[in-house]
């Protein structure tokens, strides 16, 4: 995502093995975290094999899957606790700032 695309929604992909349960719960918590950061984002959830052929700005998955997803997005976040919305918010905040996708207040 380029900075001059600032009106474009951030494309976020949450990924798990089957693409039905864990990734869906992670998607809901990622939506909560992004909303508290004030980031406009489209979050989708999917399974590992589909994810490999997809492209996004940010991909979020369990650490054990993160290496496999390196080519999917410039930002790959490893999450251990899928229910820790505040931890997810902090990781997103740091990663989006590092990319210049989240400005200072």
């Amino acid at each position: 995502m380029n900075q001059n695309d600032s009106n474009r929604q951030l494309q976020v992909l949450t990924v798990c093995g089957v693409g039905m349960g864990s990734s869906l719960i992670l998607r809901m918590n990622a939506e909560k975290a992004l909303s508290t950061l004030g980031v406009s984002a489209k979050v989708e959830h999917t399974d590992m094999s589909s994810a490999r052929s997809m492209r996004a700005d940010v991909v979020i998955a369990q650490g054990m899957h993160a290496d496999d997803l390196a080519g999917v997005a410039p930002v790959v976040l490893s999450i251990s606790n899928f229910m820790d919305v505040d931890g997810l918010r902090r990781q997103l905040d740091e990663a989006l700032r590092a990319q210049g996708w989240l400005g200072d207040e």
Partner: peptide, 18 residues
Amino acid sequence: EHGPYMVLTPGLALAHAR
């Protein structure tokens, strides 16, 4: 097949298939 990724949070696993 996919590893223990469904252990979502400390102490809790979400078991399911397709």
